[in-house]
């Protein structure tokens, strides 16, 4: 077939992606080597000074730790609960179709709305969580859940789960449905219990889907800005500071756009390393097959 036609077809996508992502990204990286401030138009190149400053910045290290913990915990929990949910939805019991259609709703609504809902739920006086706690006699636990350094971070994790677990569930469910029923029959004849058939048949059967979901969500969670920015802004104190929020704070609260960009560049580096490892693993997997 005509090759030129092929290029012609893909070129609009490439142009848009180049103008609105690659170019801004390169520019962002360039700015990370300058002392650009939001307050002045002139700036100069200062080499690696921003990166040196970062090494001695305790809040950067704290945010980095939070980002990694958040991404790790969130993705692992999503995976576990997603599998449980998928297993449940696979059971053919009455009412299941309705349940399936309801469950994805939390994934569809805007993040800004999700945050608002949870802020309301977490209020100390009128929040649903606290009303329930009071009514079952746990008055000592009542608090503004986003305003307590101990509970704010776990609540952010909960927000991520709330949004994405149903999506995992539905995706895993569909993957499970492609596994031929005969596999399970054979396993049963050979005396495998439920756990064994899950471990030896279901998991390998949905292996590809697990890899895809985990990869997408690691990137998404690590880069996610609006959940934390809208919910806590990184507070109370620094208990929910993560890298994307810290980048924003440096650029806007301290007007240090250059320094903010350098932290953003480090985020990119971390994700690149992750992606390279992922590709290597995948290549090895394909080779084995």
């Amino acid at each position: 077939m005509d090759k030129r036609k092929g290029y012609f077809l893909i070129i609009p996508a490439i142009i848009i992606m180049f103008i609105f992502t690659f170019y801004p990204l390169m520019d962002g990286i360039r700015v990370s080597f300058t002392d650009k401030s939001m307050l002045r138009t002139e700036y100069s190149y200062i080499g690696l000074d921003n990166y040196k400053q970062m090494l001695g910045d305790p809040i950067f290290w704290l945010s980095l730790r939070h980002s990694i913990i958040l991404t790790g915990v969130v993705v692992i929990l999503q995976l576990i609960f997603g599998l449980i949910l998928a297993w449940t939805m696979k059971q053919e019991i009455p009412g299941m179709p309705i349940f399936k259609s309801l469950i994805m709703v939390s994934w569809v609504i805007p993040v800004a709305a999700t945050v608002t809902i949870f802020k309301f739920m977490a209020q100390s006086d009128v929040g649903f969580i606290n009303i329930i706690l009071k009514s079952i006699g746990l008055k000592s636990l009542v608090r503004y859940w986003f305003g307590d350094p101990l509970t704010a971070f776990p609540l952010i994790i909960l927000l991520h789960l709330w949004r994405n677990v149903p999506f995992y569930g539905i995706a895993f469910l569909a993957a499970m449905q492609t596994i031929p029923a005969s596999f399970y029959e054979v396993a049963e004849i050979n005396g495998a219990n439920a756990f064994q058939s899950f471990w030896y048949i279901t998991l390998p059967g949905i292996r590809n889907m697990i890899i895809v979901m985990v990869t997408i969500h690691v990137l998404w969670t690590f880069n996610n800005f609006d959940f934390i920015y809208l919910a806590t802004g990184g507070g109370p104190i620094n208990s929910t500071d993560v890298l994307p929020v810290y980048v924003y704070r440096q650029s806007w609260d301290r007007y240090a756009a250059g320094y903010g960009a350098s932290i953003g560049t480090v985020m990119l580096l971390i994700l690149s390393i992750y992606l390279i490892i992922y590709l290597l693993i995948q290549e090895r997997g394909e080779y084995k097959r």
Partner: peptide, 29 residues
């Protein structure tokens, strides 16, 4: 459908934009 040169690079390039931190691109964007 077409045997485009550098197809793998194009696909990988487009997919890799998913890992670009939006906050870093905000001002240049």
């Amino acid at each position: 459908r077409y045997d485009i040169k550098g197809k793998k690079i194009i696909i990988f390039g487009i997919f890799s934009t998913q890992m670009f931190p939006q906050v870093l691109m905000l001002i240049p964007l």
